[in-house]
Design a protein around this nucleic acid. Structure first.
Lengths: 109, 109
DNA sequence: TTTGTATATTGCAATATTACGATTAATAAT
DNA sequence: ATTATTAATCGTAATATTGCAATATACAAA
């Protein structure tokens, strides 16, 4: 199959999984870290910085963009990609809620 | 290819991606939420709770166990799975550092 | 208009993931 | 000993992901 049965899970579970999946590849982690580091970016830099072929980087950027975590502004012949702060904050909220489930719990084993 | 080029990324980037990938499937999200909720669990409950076949749940549990996020104690004929609090905290630290990169940054676009 | 530069898209091969039926292993109950 | 119960493993089909070469697109510069 290879097909996730999304219909049996809640919207929250599916949303969180989609966000997490975005971070589930080291290239996308590296892209986001680089975008934060220089606070503005063109794709060309990323190809050089990360060491994957241009189509591959472009594909990863597209995924992050579709999720809303980054946005791209065309500037002449190149594209300025950067973090979408508002959406990043929203995503963080979702992740924090999930990650902090352990507070106020005792261990059983 | 379908093969991640881990060797071109840092250990931190690869580790974070592995943790994130664990949350990148709604079934594993649901499993972890359920484990937190009842604070102790046997696999059978999860099969009933989540609605996937027993081998599928077992496989997801194995992945979470391999990552160290949960541990399983055999109790008679069933297995008691629960969160590994220590490792969960460590994972949280890693994720928080990544998610909080945006603090102390100004927007560019 | 041609040439160069930067990014996106297409097509494809290789590998990974998801899901489950069938089976196995291990213990509990009778 | 036999049977029932629970969970792991095996095998396999279907789908997804990763990565890149080739190509297309879009704009700038000459």
């Amino acid at each position: 199959m290879g097909l996730i049965k999304s219909e049996i899970f809640t919207d929250e579970q599916n949303e969180l999984a989609l966000f997490a999946k975005a971070f589930g590849h080291p290239a996308r982690v590296a892209i986001l870290q680089h975008l934060f580091k220089i606070n503005s970016c063109v794709c060309g830099d990323l190809v050089h910085e990360i060491g994957l072929a241009q189509p591959t980087i472009s594909q990863h950027l597209k995924e992050l963009k579709n999720l809303g975590l980054i946005k791209g502004n065309i500037e002449g012949t190149s594209v300025c990609y950067c973090i979408d702060s508002k959406n990043w904050s929203g995503m963080k909220e979702t992740m924090f809620e999930f990650l902090n489930q352990d507070t106020a719990k005792e261990n059983c084993c």
